[in-house]
């Protein structure tokens, strides 16, 4: 019988009791950009524009490969953007154009 993968029977995020990796208690100092993501999320939450369960639902929608590969705040910024798109606060076109503008700006700043 083929071995079942994690997602065959539970969500990719639903890890309780699923022994998967050796545990090591490591940590890093949060980078400024990670703190900015956290602050924007919190501000959106206090304004009623982003609930914590909504954010988690979006994170869980990343799919197994991305869920495993992306860092925590990479998951968050992606999920926050999805929710802002869903709520019509920003559009795909605006996000796409602004990402390119930021990229160009950084390139010209050297």
């Amino acid at each position: 019988m083929a071995h079942k993968s994690l997602t065959d029977y539970r969500g990719v995020h639903d890890l309780g009791g699923v022994l998967c990796e050796p545990f090591a208690p490591d940590e890093h100092d949060y980078a400024p950009w990670e703190k900015r993501v956290h602050a924007v999320r919190e501000l959106l939450a206090t304004k009623g524009l982003l609930r914590v369960d909504e954010l988690r639902r979006a994170v869980e929608g990343l799919g197994e490969e991305k869920y495993r590969r992306l860092s925590y705040y990479e998951q968050w910024i992606w999920a926050m953007t999805q929710i802002m798109l869903e709520r019509g606060i920003v559009t795909d076109a605006e996000i796409g154009a602004r990402v390119e503008a930021v990229r160009a700006r950084l390139a010209s700043d050297g």
């Binding site: 860092s71 990479e74 910024i77 953007t81 920003v90 990402v99 930021v102 990229r103």
Partner: peptide, 16 residues
């Protein structure tokens, strides 16, 4: 380094 997700962080914050 500026990854795609970091670009997205700047873009979303500026737009908001």
């Amino acid at each position: 380094p500026f990854t795609e997700y970091r670009l997205l962080e700047v873009a979303l914050r500026e737009l908001l």
